[in-house]
Design a binder for these strands. Structure first.
Lengths: 370, 370
DNA sequence: CGATATCATGACATCGGTGTCATAACTGGG
DNA sequence: CCCAGTTATGACACCGATGTCATGATATCG
């Protein structure tokens, strides 16, 4: 591979002049510039980043660590969902700054994180981003304090800058929309309670109910571990069956995520219930391969992974630029950034016809069956 | 960040000795080694890859370019499927060699490929891998001939080493399995004919039919552009409707991929047909979020993206090591490596009961309705 | 026309490891 | 006790780009 010395010799100038042509530093004569550019072309010259970064003490590299690529024990089916969009968003944000992203995954093993960080440090990354496969709390090894870190889809207790999905808000908006559509009996099949999303989303659900003057009915709410290898579908079936046998059954069921909604579609139809005519279904995540392909298409909440990635990239850039409130000590407790996505209203939930609405009172009981 | 000079001073030795401790080159005295290691720990030393690679003329970096991350116009719903697993496989293969993967995506724009390659070359990558979002032909700009390249999920006309899914074989095995289960009327809803998978998979289907002595019936075969934004579901509905109205309708329908199968589930159930009791459905890809979550779970063919990634990584390593048949001119036409995945038999297709099978003759016509 | 400002260019040191070669400190056989 | 043969260590150059400073060539102005 050609070096600037080769180029310089070919063009009959000094290496420094070649450098000037590349970087537009000092002034360069018109003919000289042309000669150098010609020489670069002739030799197929590409500048060595290693040498450059050694001198400049800047690598132009961002390290991205993700556990998201890999199969994790507990959530083996969730693999590969969000992070691509997050990565894409990150790249979009970093693109203009000329940074290159170096990526590595932990293969789901926490003990790989430390060595990966070392590898990245040996490349003198200017910043690190850690992407988790689902909204959770994490604890990373200590970094040298001059290496900024941004967490995405996760948070820690040390106040490290974090970009999170606004699960509570998203679910709140969706349920609000359901209520506006005339629904009063709204079931909720939640994710496992030990997942952050299994807590925050139900919280949004209850807030929206409260605001709509609808009392919370425990019979309409269940945590269901639907992705258990064998028992999952059965558990889900039982939860749904239980709700539908109520004297006052739900007119729509919210699912903890789109994947659960997919399974619910199958179960409801096997039960002989038409979606959306007899019962509505709503999801969460806007996992598009599911939400757009389901028949009928799924009403859901968009989880703005791409936007989160962009925010993470921007945040990291500002940290690198030293505009960081944390490092400069301006704001000691940096609250995480929550990004909310829009409700996507599709055909899986019916707008209640006025007559149907008349059948209901705000408290959710039928009053005048014809 | 500390350098070996800092470490050397701290330990009271020369920089070269520190280097020896790190690399285990020359002999080092016991006490000296201990002192150096202590110094490294005390200073939090991490060796600079830039300096190292400058001297060694090796970067230890592999460049990975993918269009797979991004939304492409034609297949906007297909995004984010394979590449994560491919990336994971690549990393698994490269892990032991100590290589680091640098990743960049084209955001679906072909004109971004050249600049990305330049960026990678400036980092002096030791090899490049290009991953396409779906099985297709590509044409990449010329690379310096000492930089090896491996294509994954795509191929070109220049004989560049490529790792491909064995679409034909996979479909063949699946249909063979369907026939073994007693099915004689097998419908096929193919992907668009301008996609490689829309050609090779049907080819495998027909081969299996031929081998099973079942005549190919054009009425049971259709290319259906199911992922058209609006018209998609309707097209698919019409194709299915047409097949089911035949005097001799299919007992199982093969879909071009799992996503199509997902939509077919919805349509069949809306039509009131039970899966698998009244009609079987099979997919392709083993896109697990779909195939395992569908109710009932989907019979499909595993597309071994992870294995393909591993193969690609191994191939690249051998190219870098100079064991390449191409470069050494041993084998001029390097045929692409096709990786086939297993058939995954799940509940979406019924094993025909013996009585049912008795109703059929090998040519697929009913003979003795009781 | 001479003095000074500006432009164009080059010499040289430097970044942080590592290869090469030299040298110093031992060890053991005769 | 001396010399060959190891073992342990250091001095120095080098990889390729670039910051600093110096210098030669023009341009500008009083």
């Amino acid at each position: 591979m050609a070096t600037i010395y080769d180029v310089a010799k070919h063009a009959g100038v000094s290496p420094k002049t070649v450098s000037r042509v590349m970087n537009g530093d000092g002034p360069v004569g018109e003919k000289t510039r042309a000669a150098v550019e010609e020489a670069m072309r002739a030799l197929g010259f590409v500048r060595s980043n290693a040498a450059r970064m050694m001198r400049a003490q800047k690598s132009g590299i961002i390290g991205l660590i993700t556990g998201a690529i890999s199969t994790t024990g507990l959530n083996h089916k969730q693999q590969g969902l969000p992070d691509l969009f997050i990565v894409q968003g990150i790249q979009r944000a970093l693109e203009s700054s000329g940074m290159t992203v170096m990526i590595a995954d932990t293969a789901g093993r926490q003990d790989r994180v430390a060595p990966l960080i070392d590898t990245f440090l040996s490349h003198r990354v200017e910043g690190l981003i850690y992407v988790a496969e689902y909204h959770q709390e994490v604890s990373l090894p200590q970094l040298p304090e001059d290496t900024p870190l941004v967490l995405v889809n996760c948070f820690d207790t040390k106040g490290t800058p974090a970009i999170l999905p606004d699960d509570r808000r998203g679910q709140y908006e969706l349920v609000r929309r359901l209520i506006a559509a005339g629904h009063r009996r709204i079931g909720y099949l939640a994710l496992r309670a030990d997942m952050v999303a299994g807590q925050l989303r139900p919280q949004g659900y209850r807030e929206a109910l409260a605001e709509g003057g609808i009392p919370y009915d425990p019979a309409l709410f269940a945590h269901t571990n639907f992705d258990l290898p064998e028992a999952g579908p059965q558990l889900l079936w039982d939860s749904i069956d239980h709700m539908l046998r109520l004297a006052n059954p739900p007119t729509v069921i919210c699912c903890g995520n789109d994947q659960m909604a997919l399974m619910v579609y199958g179960i409801l139809r096997t039960m002989g219930r038409l979606v959306p005519d007899e019962i509505g279904v709503a999801g969460f995540d806007n996992y598009r391969v599911i939400s757009e392909t389901l028949y009928p298409p799924l009403t859901t909440v968009d989880l703005p992974y791409n936007a989160m990635g962009v925010r993470a990239g921007e945040r990291l850039l500002s940290l690198i630029a030293g505009e960081d409130p944390l490092l400069s000590g301006r704001s000691p407790t940096q609250s995480p950034v929550c990004v909310a996505g829009p409700v996507l209203w599709r055909a899986s939930v019916a707008e209640m016809r006025p007559t149907n609405i008349l059948h209901m009172k705000p408290n959710g009981r039928k009053t005048d069956e014809v």
